[in-house]
Design a protein around this nucleic acid. Structure first.
Lengths: 240, 240
DNA sequence: CCAAAAGTGTTGTTGATACACCCATGT
DNA sequence: ACATGGGTGTATCAACAACACTTTTGG
């Protein structure tokens, strides 16, 4: 009756015939600078495509999960811990890497550039921020991974307040608005944005104002993660 | 300067130290029956957990992509081609399978039960539909994969009309409404649902009615994929 | 005083929600 | 005639878009 036998659950099979050359992790690291969304790329050091830029990557070790591997790889470069990290998907095209069969699991992360800058000097890999619309030709399928991550970011940002991870702890409403404008590629109305975002009760107004600006100083706010958790069950709508 | 050397792009490294035992594909196959959402599970035939149910799975071959592998594996069981299939993510917990290091790439698919039933007899694996809220204990981390796929389905169904893949070509508005009610776990107002869905112009009214029902026969509709493609750029909102 | 950005108020329109009601058909 | 689901109409309310306006501050 069961001609396919154990094929129905192949994780029990002997794997010899199916082994591949390895699994890597590649991370799209997003940052926000003034008014533009940027990505951290690293210099390709060895191998056949020397000199080209690519995403930060590394091998997944046998005894760690992909999430752990991604956290490790990112903190090796940036010294940042506990950053927002989310898996994109596995990229498995058989000829995505010449000669060998390497599957990569894509991740994207949102970092606060202010935190990053403090510790960037610890890094020993050549790394550089690129604006989202001036990305060069990258190694392997990294352009594809990047494109996918942008799509994912645009989707996720509408459903959860992940955008806050790109900003400093204290920010103005217009900074936040510019962030959304840049990520979503749309223009927003100042007045309507204020009303909507304040209505959500996710922001806490601080007793502080901007310093050293040549115009009226704006009030600073911080994101209230606790309130968010309480609201999150009902589903918050970040459509702008 | 570049102490980490080629580590920055590990896909160029020798893979020997990192090789894992294999990559499998596991598919959550969703179907819709009368008023309930169901999942197709298969009997675990060999290995240590004999007799247990699990997701349909198979090895990814060295020369195929994960998408191709998933299509192949599903059509081997159901004889269905060209079904709606989407990658969930990679599941990589180091001890998700005892003894060996097997990473699986999860997929979910939406099938039309009417099509499926016709050809089900070709299958040689024990397979059975389970209602979404009566799922037994599954092998490995398959319960986790299933849970994740449900979450994903609920999210995706709000943003694109993928739900249609679960219905026959011709359906009534109330069938469609029940589908959304079941997937999202909410109650909908008949009148408001009609208005909203017809407003979208994604449905084409057919010159046909239900047959053999013991009440007023409802008009049949079909989904218009062309109109959807035209509308899809502006973003269609399937929030109910 | 002017530029530039912060911040407030008003108004028309749209769309969601709730609910009442009529219609067609098989038993 | 009545049960069952199919299908229509309407009043109310909340959210959003557009846009005009006032306030604060540095140069």
């Amino acid at each position: 009756m069961n001609l396919l036998s154990s094929k129905s659950n192949p994780e029990n099979d002997s794997p010899t015939a199916h082994a591949i050359d390895g699994i890597t992790i590649d991370c799209v690291i997003f940052g926000f600078n003034k008014e533009s969304l940027e990505v951290l790329l690293v210099q390709h050091a060895g191998g056949e495509s020397i000199g080209k830029w690519g995403l930060l990557g590394g091998y997944m070790k046998k005894e760690e999960s992909a999430d752990d591997a991604a956290q490790r790889i990112v903190s090796e470069l940036t010294s940042l811990d506990n950053i927002y990290l989310e898996q994109l998907k596995a990229f498995t095209n058989p000829d995505r890497v010449p000669e060998r069969r390497v599957v990569t699991i894509g991740y994207y992360t949102l970092v606060n550039r202010e935190d990053y800058n403090i510790k960037a000097s610890l890094s020993v890999i050549e790394a550089k921020w690129y604006k989202i619309n001036t990305i060069p030709d990258l190694i392997f399928d990294h352009n594809e991974i990047l494109k996918f991550s942008l799509m994912q970011l645009r989707n996720r940002v509408r459903q959860a307040p992940i955008g806050f991870n790109l900003l400093p702890d204290k920010f103005t409403l217009l900074q936040l608005m510019h962030l959304y404008e840049e990520i979503l590629g749309i223009e927003l109305d100042k007045s309507n944005f204020r009303r909507k975002i304040l209505h959500m009760k996710l922001l806490v107004a601080l007793d502080e104002k901007q310093q050293d600006v040549s115009h009226r100083a704006a009030k600073l706010y911080k994101f209230d993660a606790d309130t968010y958790k309480k609201l999150t069950e009902k589903g918050v709508n970040f459509e702008f």
